[in-house]
Design a protein around this nucleic acid. Structure first.
Lengths: 357, 357
DNA sequence: TTCATCGTTCAAAGCGGTTTCAAGTTCTGC
DNA sequence: GCAGAACTTGAAACCGCTTTGAACGATGAA
């Protein structure tokens, strides 16, 4: 049933019915009640396709999920973020459009969503340093919000980010306080803005204590379990293994733990591990004393915040760009402890284990 | 720029331009080339909102992500499935609409998508036994495909499923062949169709060898890391611990591994583990010899298949319902081995470790 | 009583495409 | 050279809703 039929059916004009359903004030209460009731009874729901054309609003937010040919990986953080954002969209009557594209087509995909008029706004995920997507969306004048930030981009834009630099500074400092001097860093992909900030936090904390950064102890890559395993193995088998490791996500941290176990090295006593925990729903780092000492920041909450900001900006409620910087407090878990005396790791038997092929 | 302006600009009627862009045959090649070229040059892209109203097609597929209040978990399988399906949608010019709703609102959400006319079809995720969503979509006559199947639903429908029963039968049989007699099962949530089939495969394999199923060894729950940890702990600390465990996903398997390590029990020698591996992109069970012995079936591939079937069915290319049953072959990894003689586990020192609080 | 005002309601003109149907043009075959 | 088929093109209706501008009756002020 369409508006014409429905309105005819209840003896009113399409105009009045439309107004009644959309909450316009010039409809009398009696009429509105009648319309709402009849719509319910007769099962009339306005066709969104028509409404979207008529209003010029798509009532939809675009998210783009880029997959690269080589490492076609879905960022595990994506789903939790989407869950948070989607929740807010639903509340405001917005739909969420998700485009899966090859990463070289990503810019084109944003442009396409905008020119085809299927979205009113978009979210940028995983910004790189000097990310071109930001400039693009500014250019085509599509409202957007960035989950993260992008260094070296000029012009204002909405963003929600974790204070990555401070979190990693704090985590590093914590390990230094425990007496660790050789601290490894298993970071995200090079070029990602968040990875750079984390690296800086780590490096600056070391520098503040006059400790040189050892490039052998810093890794960047996609945050898979295997990546955490391989990098941890490599570090611990090296001539000068670290006594502590910072890991950028709980997923590679699983791999790091596996490596430690495989080598028979105690997690938390012989080698300490601090992770950044995005509070993924299916991977909770919980318990009275969490498994991992961690800097935590819920990515789902970030999704909610991004959605709210974007919707505000679309509705024109916000004139200025909004920035939210989330602090990630350090929670001490079971994976950290005082640095062991170096001789533990230099003990003959142990080194043999560490250096086996 | 809209169609009217554009067509006027290049001296043709809107009709011809529309036809040229949509590949209708009654346009001369010369004209079509001219239109395509000019569109490119002048940057004209048809407004999808208008096209959707005019054609009556939404060119969009709906996915619904239900979140429950208590255990608001995003199924980790979801993102990989979406990645696979979304890839296919893009290729066919379809968009993907994702609705995040509270799970009690899920049925309403499907109905809403259909009556508002924002989708042409939908995917049902994680079907339960006798799933009401299937009947609903049949009733409102919205094309759909189920990722999984639903026992006890009558009527035909499209589905893509893994042969869960056979996979778990096979895995159980494999462990039995290795001499294991007490085999635990860490399964998905009760009521989920896939979990039931897996339980049946496991139970039937045991029964075929005349082994009684011990309810103390069977668990069902949401497949988090902690769930795998807790259930494994419980089993291994029980008076009659299993010598092997089947785990329904790699995520709880991480927890199971953690439990084994914490108890100092060797994975693959003292206790064997077989998992079902959905081949999640950020959690690959790979290597020359995979870490886990596993029945594997790519959920991303399932997503692609579902998308293809659904699109076919929407385009009316398919008259009959299609069913795809994917076989999950067993790959032997490092996590399984012959059952140890029972005395190992009954050794005095060991049991003390196992039974500590 | 009359005129301005207010509160309601409606007719009709969009929104920007697609598609039907008619018409004009160019080819054939005879 | 001409009728009829085969190609191309275009005018106008239509998709189902929103919104502008006008109309109408009721109310209140003059």
């Amino acid at each position: 049933m369409n508006l014409k039929e429905f309105s005819h059916h209840i003896g009113l004009s399409p105009t009045t019915v439309s107004r009644a359903l959309n909450g316009y004030p010039e409809v009398s209460e009696r009429t509105r009640r009648k319309v709402l009731e009849s719509a319910e009874r007769l099962g009339y729901t306005p066709n969104s396709r028509a409404a979207r054309l008529a209003t010029g609003r798509a009532m939809t937010i675009g998210h783009i999920l880029p997959l690269s040919k080589e490492h076609e990986m879905v960022n595990p953080i994506f789903s939790d973020f989407i869950a948070g954002a989607g929740e807010q969209y639903s509340k405001s009557g917005y739909d969420l459009s998700l485009s899966v594209v090859r990463d070289e087509d990503e810019a084109e995909a944003y442009r396409d969503l905008a020119t085809r008029g299927v979205v009113d706004g978009a979210v940028i995920h995983g910004p790189k340093i000097d990310d071109p997507r930001i400039r693009l969306l500014q250019e085509i004048d599509l409202p957007f919000v960035v989950h993260g930030r992008s260094s070296r981009v000029d012009g204002e834009y909405n963003w929600v980010d974790v204070n990555n630099r401070r979190a990693f500074w704090r985590a590093t400092d914590f390990l230094l306080d425990l007496g660790h001097r050789r601290i490894g860093l298993i970071n995200g992909l090079d070029g990602m803005d968040f990875a750079t900030r984390r690296l800086n936090g780590y490096g600056d904390a070391l520098a503040a204590r006059g400790i040189a950064r050892d490039p052998e102890l810093v890794f960047s890559g996609e945050m898979t379990e295997n990546y955490g395993f391989a990098t941890t193995m490599q570090m611990l088998r090296s001539p000068k293994p670290p006594t502590a490791i910072l890991v950028s996500s709980i997923i590679p941290a699983m791999g790091a733990r596996r490596a430690l176990h495989d080598l028979g090295i105690g997690l938390g006593d012989e080698v300490s591990v601090v992770i950044h925990d995005d509070d993924l729903s299916y991977f909770r780092n919980e318990g009275d004393v969490p498994i991992f000492t961690a800097t935590r920041s819920s990515v789902r909450e970030a999704g909610r915040l991004c959605a709210d900001i974007l919707l505000d900006s679309i509705r024109g409620a916000q004139d200025e760009c909004r920035h939210v910087l989330l602090e990630a407090d350090l929670t001490v878990g079971q994976s950290t402890g005082p640095a062991p005396a170096m001789r533990h790791l230099l003990d003959r038997d142990r080194t043999e284990v560490l250096r086996r092929p």
